[in-house]
Design a protein around this nucleic acid. Structure first.
Lengths: 202, 202, 202, 202
DNA sequence: AATGAATGAGGTTTCATTCAT
DNA sequence: TATGAATGAAACCTCATTCAT
């Protein structure tokens, strides 16, 4: 889909320019939301003309699709290794804690756009399909590795999914909607304990 | 805020008309999303004129705010009682299972609008404030009752929050983005086990 | 088709406004051509706002379609009566001459738009269909009357068509593309003689 | 004017390239109309770059002007000879019939573009001038030959003009806008009879 | 309280043309 | 000569909101 809707530039300068547009779009989507960002602003932010935006992207939505890659936290090999290799509970807890902290920073930057994107999945089938594929790949890769590493963890696909969203939700709450009666440090501890428990549940 | 932005009609017919508008707005927001629904459509769906919409609501956003009440699942007393009173694990698990099933139906109807609303919380302070209050009230009421009932559950506010979002997330996945590799029945079992564990963690 | 693409206003003032838009569009299409006239200009010329244009017309093309009625010379009863009733050749010739003169004036006003419209028939199926129907009705009405009046003229449909276009073409030449070597008075005489001949050919 | 607006390339390859552009433009103008064809499409169809188009042509209009030569049927010597030399009515009628058939094929290919071009004559003085010269030359050449051949046909310029447009109109109707009530074979017969009559009218 | 016509700023997108390479 | 990325004015159209009735 992306291939038919976005022009793939060969030359380095062109790639840079395309990336500039994606970055500009991403930045503005995060700051103001997709619907409150117009294409002229994206062009201006990217330092290019309006027209060139439509040279690289079929339409405004195609820019949004191109930013998805930046909106989903990269499930890098570190996470994967830690999760399945490390058998030391304490080590894993510390790692989870660090991951959560990193994810909070990520949310501070991208979450608004990410969530709007999720929302649009519900009204726009194109986006839904695209997003689903993207998240699937990321989460499945983690679970796949767990499986292929011969871990004893049962139902890894289901667990990884649950854990991912628990962390995601926690970070979102910390960044955007701190409620008075909640102690977010305690909450984090509970979260980690709960995740640890989930991992080794049968 | 809502009070100052929406005119409260005294007469029954007027109230009915206002409610019709809210319902129409809610229906369309759910079906198409806030930004893809225009006020003329709302008026037509409600069977009223364009002008009268602006008699009852300050602007389009005010209609959205008025629909929030319908978007958050009612945390009724049943839930509250079961959660804190029941000490029988098995009974509680069954209850959780039923609650999840009910919540899935709720998602099928309202989730799209609900999520868009959450998204807008991030870019629109008015909405953020309004929404926070709303959710706060619902979730806090549960935790409050747990506390006042002398339950032995620790950190009830944090736990209720986590549990709420875990269920929410699960329902969303079931309704909107079923992933191939995931068995949602197993996932549900894991979820319940995990919630049970969380409740009695220290 | 017209019904679904144009809103039919009930109230007199609204009808007047709609007509103003049609007139404005027509005027500008004649002066500058359809493609060189933009909707803002039409609105301004009509003394209305941009938005209201799209309240009455689905899109710019719908305005064009609405102007067709004014672009085709009205084949009024006078023409019809003269053509079939009058058996006096001399009288008919004079009448043809007058008709041609009147048609020249008509061309001076409308021909550019008319021709552009014809052109668009070739690239736009909607317009083609609409135009065909319109011209069909006008020309057929003349031929129908000839038939129903028991005239001795054979093949009236074919003849009326040929004659109409001969006159049309002549007027167009007089108005727009006078060629040096041609004496348009002589040409007119030839035309009339030829038409008279055609009418009574077997 | 054309000379000053288009660069005349000396080298063969360049000439070929220019011709490719003209052909591409002509093809697309015929298929989609001038206003619905953009220069990028022309370049792509011609297999050249966008930029080079503007090396050979001052602007888009210049491409249109360059295509005119292909849009007017070539009034070749055959036609001319037949028309004036042949004194045999029957022979002439057959010839007219064949000419009309050939012209129908021509219309199938080129009429849309031709007509659009005529239309533009009315709004664009450059095109008007250019076109007038072109058609003038073609039609006048026929009439000139008639005159120089000592034909007895009176008012040849006027007659050739009328006849040309009658045929043109007939072909257009056959190709583009067949009306139900008309029998185009009968119409053709009438046309030929009428032309024959016109030729020998005084 | 009610209507729906009217407004007009602003959005997305196109495209003839230019320019750096 | 040749490329095709880049420009940016301008086009069409939408829609939240207002206003005359």
């Amino acid at each position: 889909m992306a291939a038919s809707e976005t022009r793939e530039p060969r030359q380095t300068r062109a790639i840079e320019k395309k990336n500039k547009i994606i970055e500009a779009g991403f930045k503005l989507f995060c700051e103001k939301g997709y619907h409150y960002t117009n294409t002229n602003e994206i062009a201006k932010e990217a330092g290019v003309s309006t027209g060139i935006v439509y040279h690289y992207f079929k339409d405004k939505k195609a820019i949004l699709l191109a930013t998805v890659g930046q909106m989903v936290p990269s499930f890098d090999h570190e996470i994967i290794n830690k999760l399945c290799v490390s058998k030391d509970r304490r080590e894993l807890e510390i790692f989870l804690s660090e991951t959560i902290d990193r994810d909070i920073d990520f949310h501070k930057l991208f979450k608004a756009a990410h969530e709007e994107f999720l929302t649009m999945c519900h009204s726009d089938p194109d986006i839904a399909e695209y997003m689903k594929g993207f998240q699937d790949k990321g989460l499945s890769r983690i679970a796949d590795t767990i499986v292929s590493n011969g871990s004893t963890i049962s139902n890894p696909y289901e667990k990884v999914d649950i854990i991912y969203h628990m962390i995601d939700q926690y970070c979102d709450a910390v960044v955007f909607s701190k409620r008075e009666k909640i102690d977010y440090n305690i909450m984090k501890e509970l979260l980690i304990k709960n995740i640890m428990n989930l991992l080794y549940i049968n």
